[in-house]
Amino acid sequence: MTHNKFGLGRKIPSEVEREVRRKSGFGCVVCGEIFCDYHHIEPYEDAKFHDPDKIILLCKLHHGEVTGSLNGRKMSDDTLSKYILSPYGLRKGNNVWRNLTSIEAIKLGNFLFLETEIALRIDGLDVLSFSFSDEEFPIVGVNALFFNSEGREILKIKDNVVMGVTDVWDFREEGNTIQVNSASHKIDLRIIFHNNGLLEIERLRLSYLNGTVEIGADGALISKYRDKVYALTQEARIRGGQVGIEIANGVMRLGKGERTQYFKGASNIAKNSQPSRLSHEDSAVLPNISQNQSPQTPPTDNWSEFSYNGTIAGQRISIQRMRHSHGSTAIETDGRSIRIGVSNGSPMSMRIEKMSINSIKKSASDKTEG
Rank of each mutant, 00 (worst) to 15 (best):
E281I: 13
G109H: 08
Y38Q: 01
M75E: 07
F113T: 07
G335D: 02
S365M: 08
I122D: 05
E214S: 07
L206Y: 11
L61V: 13
K11S: 11
L114V: 15
E369M: 12
I247E: 03
K264P: 01
A330C: 10
E214F: 11
Y262K: 04
S365K: 10
I317A: 09
Y230F: 15
S76T: 10
H3A: 06
V229K: 06
D301Q: 13
G141T: 13
V162D: 00
D218G: 04
I269P: 00
K271W: 05
I201V: 15
A217M: 13
G89S: 02
G89T: 05
N181K: 14
R321V: 10
Q242H: 09
I154C: 07
S359F: 05
T166P: 00
C28K: 01
L114H: 04
F49H: 12
L221W: 05
N309F: 14
H326E: 07
S356W: 06
E104Q: 15
V96G: 03
I139A: 04
G265T: 08
W97G: 03
V127E: 05
G7L: 13
I338Q: 00
A313D: 02
R277S: 05
S279M: 08
E200F: 14
L145A: 14
H280F: 08
K11G: 02
D77L: 10
V243D: 03
E153D: 06
R10S: 04
V16C: 07
S346E: 13
S343Y: 06
K361A: 13
R172Y: 12
S69R: 10
G72R: 02
D167S: 14
H185I: 12
H40P: 01
N210V: 11
N344P: 01
I103N: 01
I191R: 03
K158H: 09
N249C: 05
R321P: 00
G124S: 09
G370C: 04
Q179E: 15
K92W: 06
E136Q: 13
L286T: 11
E33Q: 08
T212V: 12
F306L: 12
K11L: 11
G27M: 03
F111V: 15
V96E: 10
V285G: 04
V285T: 13
F193W: 09
A217I: 15
E202M: 12
H3D: 06
H194C: 07
A231D: 01
S359V: 06
N302Q: 15
V127W: 07
V168C: 07
A236C: 02
L120P: 00
H280L: 12
A270E: 13
T311D: 09
S69L: 10
S131C: 08
N110P: 06
L8Q: 03
E332K: 10
G314F: 10
D134P: 02
E153H: 09
G310R: 07
S279Y: 02
W169S: 02
P295Y: 12
V20A: 03
F49L: 10
G216K: 09
T166W: 04
S223L: 15
K5M: 11
N292K: 15
K92S: 06
E173W: 11
H324M: 08
L61S: 07
G9L: 05
G219T: 11
A248M: 11
S356I: 14
I56R: 02
T101Y: 06
P295L: 13
L100H: 01
Y83M: 04
A313W: 05
K361I: 14
